[in-house]
Computed example of a mutant assay.
Amino acid sequence: MSVTQGVLLLLIGYIVFTIDKKKKNVPVPVLLLIIGIGLSFIPYFSSIEVTERMIYDLFLPGILFVSAYKYSTKAIQRHAPVLGTLSTVGLVAMALLLGLFIYGIAGWFESITLLGAMLIASILTPTDPVSAVSVLEEAADEQIAEVVDGESMINDGTSIVLFTVLAGIYTGERSFDLFSFLGEFLYVSIGGVVVGVLFGWVCSKAVHITHHRDYQVMLSIIIAYGSFHAAEHIGVSGVLGTVAAGIMLSYEFDHTNKEDHFREALSGFWNVVEPSLLALIFLLIGIAITPYLASAYWGLAILILIASIAIRFLIVSLVLKVFRRWRRLETTKQAFLVSWAGIRGTMSVFLILSLHARSPEEAGALLSISFSVVFLSLVIQSVGVYPLSKWLE
């Protein structure tokens, strides 16, 4: 992507954010996605090559850091058991059940192996709260938004480990071993968190070296991208590293730093960066997704989307009923809203592009099916969050 193309995409994003007055009814990411699909038919923009490294190295660290930095540390304490269960055991259970469902019905549309079905399921397990959380905060109980947002930050790291193992088996690069998988999962996950906590703690102390706001903002950029790439460099989760660093920085500011201008400076900067990154990423997703939509199996994609929401509802319901804090509440409605708000987005697109880079020809059907489900999820679930939350209210 050239500088000129990037500036033009930012301009389009600016126009969309500026003129959009009804974000509740039609979330901005959906509009950007549709515009991106339209841009893919213009040769100047269709020439943009959207790669998995572009999304992973450039966009994800910034988006994850903003979410983690803004996320309340008190919310983590309140919902830690729910978030931890949904993002680990719940995610694996979701992938297993959805994979079996896809394998069972895929024969009506396309010949897919059990491993291929499990791979599609692993791509569709991570959630993206960008389109849903702001709406949930206004239209629903705040704790629902906290669970959706917190789960999405953590399960991104889990989903990458699961996808990496399954993709390696699919391409013949590795064989499956349960103990090896568990060991790798623990090493990558715990290692990423440790790196992020250390990075966030050190940098939160270093911010006091200077009282110049511009330099403090510069340090926050180092935290966001430095923690990510430092973790990736030593073979642990950069996603969890950035999330842990952002949460650690927020925690340190809440408990040891009483000067509000630190948060004001950081928020002022990242409140500009966040919509800029979101504008670019959703326009680029629209451009990248278009070639696969023409050959999509829409009937199969619709069935997979319905099944994914139903399976997620089952898992969320069970998890919420296990923990006492949620047992006294009306869990059925809350579970359905949490399930519906589990939209597939940026991380799923990254995993799809990663599979394309590994096996561009053999995985053609898997790519087309996965992209079509992501598209339907982004449009249908994003648009439905607000009316559904008001109806359940």
Score class of each variant (00 low, 15 high):
Met1Ala: 15
Thr4Met: 15
Val7Phe: 09
Leu9Met: 06
Leu10Arg: 11
Gly13Trp: 06
Gly13Phe: 08
Lys22Cys: 05
Leu31Ala: 04
Phe41Gln: 03
Ile42His: 07
Pro43Ser: 03
Ser46Gly: 10
Arg53Asp: 11
Tyr56Ile: 05
Phe59Ser: 02
Pro61Cys: 04
Val66Asn: 01
Lys70Glu: 11
Lys70Phe: 07
Ala75Arg: 15
Arg78Thr: 11
Val82Leu: 08
Ser87Asp: 05
Ala93Ile: 08
Leu98Ile: 06
Leu100Ala: 10
Ile105Met: 06
Leu114Arg: 06
Ser131Asp: 12
Val135Pro: 09
Leu136Pro: 14
Gln143Asn: 11
Val148Asn: 03
Gly150Phe: 14
Gly150Arg: 12
Met153Phe: 10
Asp156Gly: 07
Asp156Lys: 02
Gly157His: 10
Thr158Ser: 11
Ser159Phe: 12
Asp177His: 01
Ser180His: 04
Phe185Thr: 00
Ile190Phe: 08
Gly191Asp: 01
Val194Lys: 01
Val194Cys: 02
Val195Trp: 02
Val195Thr: 02
Val197Ile: 09
Leu198Gln: 02
Trp201Cys: 01
Lys205Trp: 03
Thr210Met: 01
His233Ala: 12
Gly241Ser: 08
Leu249Ser: 11
Ser250Val: 13
Asp254Gly: 11
Asp254Ala: 14
Asn257Gly: 15
Lys258Leu: 12
Lys258Glu: 12
Arg263Gln: 14
Arg263Val: 10
Glu274Val: 09
Ser276Lys: 15
Leu283Cys: 05
Tyr292Lys: 04
Ala301Lys: 11
Ile306Gln: 09
Ile315Trp: 12
Arg327Ile: 08
Trp340Ile: 06
Ser348Arg: 13
Leu355Trp: 15
Ala357Leu: 07
Arg358Glu: 00
Ala363Tyr: 05
Leu366Ser: 04
Leu367Pro: 05
Leu367Gln: 13
Leu367Gly: 04
Val374Thr: 05
Leu376Val: 11
Val385Thr: 14
Tyr386His: 13
